Computed example of a mutant assay.
Amino acid sequence: MKTFRIITFIVFSIFIISCDRSGIFEEFQKATPWEFHVQVFNDDNMTQTVADALVNIYKTKEDRDNNTNIFLTRNTGADGEAVFSLKDFEPGLDAQKSKGIYYVRVEKSGIIKNDITRYLLMNDGHTYHKIVLK
């Protein structure tokens, strides 16, 4: 009986050790870098994009409301998007330092829209923030 247990343990150990787990690590290596996309539209259905709108990001509500201490700024492209990368938010690429809520101001032709982001985790992938400017 003791011999049977030892042989069973050895066979089970060999089976566990020989399993291929390389796919787990390959999946994490293909992660998509984080980006924050501000999409600007001029209709409630969000079908008509606004090109060349000024998008400013602030760290505090007071800065946004007074239009001072702009943290990041971009103009939207032809697709109505302004794209910010993790490197824009944190040059050292330390996402822990940049997590949080940010305040957004979008302006075009004298029309201004103030907004607030959701809590940004800065994980892999793309985060979208949609704003209707009218």
Rank of each mutant, 00 (worst) to 15 (best):
Y103D: 03
V55H: 01
I112H: 02
G100S: 05
R64W: 13
L120R: 03
V83K: 12
D94G: 07
N123D: 15
S98I: 11
I111Q: 12
R105M: 15
A53M: 09
T60Q: 06
E81G: 04
S109N: 15
R64D: 06
E81W: 02
D43A: 02
N69P: 01
A82R: 07
I57D: 05
R118G: 11
V83P: 04
Q39M: 13
K108G: 04
N66M: 08
D115G: 09
T60M: 09
M122D: 02
D94P: 03
A53F: 13
I101T: 15
M122S: 06
D52W: 04
T47L: 10
D52F: 12
A95C: 04
I112P: 06
L93P: 03
G80T: 01
V40T: 08
S98D: 05
I101Q: 01
N67G: 01
D79W: 03
E62I: 12
I57G: 09
I116C: 04
I57W: 08
D115K: 02
F89T: 05
V55D: 00
V40P: 09
D115C: 03
L120E: 12
Y58K: 02
A78S: 09
T68E: 15
N42P: 01
V50F: 00
S98N: 03
V38P: 07
D88A: 07
N69T: 05
V104H: 02
I70G: 07
K61I: 10
D63S: 14
P91M: 03
L72P: 08
Y102S: 03
K99D: 07
A95K: 12
N123G: 08
D79T: 05
D88S: 04
I112Q: 01
G100P: 05
V106W: 05
Q96E: 14
Y103R: 08
Y103F: 15
K99L: 09
L86C: 05
D44C: 02
K99I: 12
F89L: 02
S98H: 06
N123Q: 12
K99E: 12
D63P: 09
R105E: 12
V106C: 00
S85Y: 11
